[in-house]
Design a protein around this nucleic acid. Structure first.
Lengths: 250, 250
DNA sequence: GAGTGGTCTAGACCACACT
DNA sequence: GTGTGGTCTAGACCACTCG
């Protein structure tokens, strides 16, 4: 009934269990609001301790695959929430691909510019740093204009990125990952609605005064280092901007 | 050196430990990127098992208070991440207070309404539930109109909230916390820029067609229970809308 | 009372980073 | 080698739900 754990697989058991359960849910063997086997049942079936099962279920709760109710059981989350989580994040390219859209970009400029006070603050840089790489790009979805993106990048000392490299890779994040092992992990962002200025309107091919979403974001790597500060203008014709907050005080 | 656990306190040990550590960090006893005591050290100091310590540290990693590096130790997250995280989420009142602004609200309506398909889906409710509490409120910052907020609340069976209660407490979240121990923890949201409709414009005292941010959000409690579905319209004169994404796939 | 998830213990062994 | 976090076990008792 439940697939077995591969004892020769090096991946941790709890992650194997996560995989087993997500597969069952993604393939709709277990349906939303349906109760899944109890923790004790999993223990017997998979021959692992209850702690291990609980760890997997804990992870799956965070991932919005499952929710637990004390005294009752563990249940499958509604599909919408799972989908939501899977498409959250700021990776433009992956975001688009998940939705079955074709992303593309046009690089408008790439410069090595002096730091402004604002950018220095956002990138948490000290006084010793004086310049950063600035990218200006237009993003397209299914060949239709989507957004105007200005990125400020913190690269390792002496390193640089060329337009050719970026165009070859297609995605800035893939390139950074390949060259510097930068793995974008956390993004902090602020967004607000505004009227398109003359400049923004001309880039996005909108009328001046048309509503656009302005987003400022800072991207941190898995190692908690700042990687990018980005400013985005999006027309309202684009897909909604999704995000997920993990907050709340204790 | 480290405060002790209160053995007569009913709150779980791991949450008491979370509290102890967040206090140390908030009071800057432990500074960003500084290494905190090892798990084994905590075990001895607090007289708890390593599993319990790990659980607390796990939680604190999710909260961006700590990050762990295998073979090295556990470290304090940069302040920027924590600050951002602390002001993230959808608590209007706390958000405003943190910025030194004075929040206030005008309750337009409070009804116990039949569930629509959309709201049922968002709130992860089954077919047995038929009604929810619907709040419509106007939010002000420093006495200036900020946003139009429509909340759908899932309260425990038979429970209800009155306008008087809410006006007395001043904050919906404080009230929910006090009455039902609801602690908002995760919010999923979609936002988009749009032109103000006639209705929205009249509420927000804007011209029709003025840019507004439309936000749809679902709020989950610390226990991963759905608590609220909310629709917000914000004028562009307001403070930016903040959020934080945690990405990375498994 | 039986069954569920929630908390916790006291160990064990492993992978990784330092020196 | 020593010390760190990462994984895992086999139990225990509690709080809650439901028949």
């Amino acid at each position: 009934m439940i697939s077995d754990i591969d004892r020769f697989d090096e991946t941790p058991k709890f992650l194997q269990i996560v995989k087993i359960i997500t597969t069952k849910i993604d393939e709709e063997v277990w349906l939303p609001h349906e109760m899944i086997p109890t923790e004790r049942a999993f223990c017997e079936e998979l021959n692992v301790s209850r702690t291990t099962i609980r760890r997997a279920i804990e992870k799956l709760s965070d991932m919005f695959y499952l929710y637990r109710v004390q005294g009752k059981g563990t249940f499958v989350c509604p599909k919408e929430l799972r989908e939501f989580r899977k498409t959250s994040g700021m990776g433009f390219r992956e975001h688009a691909l998940k939705r079955g859209q074709v992303p593309s970009q046009k690089i408008l400029s790439l410069e090595y510019v002096p730091l402004t006070a604002k950018v220095r603050t956002r990138l948490c840089l000290g006084e010793t740093e004086t310049r950063v790489h600035k990218f200006v790009r237009l993003f397209y979805l299914d060949a239709k204009l989507d957004s105007l993106n200005t990125s400020y990048l913190v690269l390792p000392e002496g390193e640089t990125i060329t337009v050719d490299e970026l165009e070859e890779t297609g995605s800035l994040y893939s390139l950074l990952r390949k060259k510097y092992h930068y793995i974008p992990y956390i993004t902090c962002q602020e967004s607000t609605a505004m009227k398109a200025s003359e400049k923004v309107a001309s880039y996005l091919e909108l009328e001046v005064g048309y509503p656009v979403t302005y987003i400022e974001g800072v991207v941190w790597t898995l190692e908690h280092k700042v990687m990018e500060y980005v400013e985005i203008y999006r027309g309202d014709r684009t897909i909604p901007h999704q995000s997920m907050n993990v907050g709340g005080s204790l």
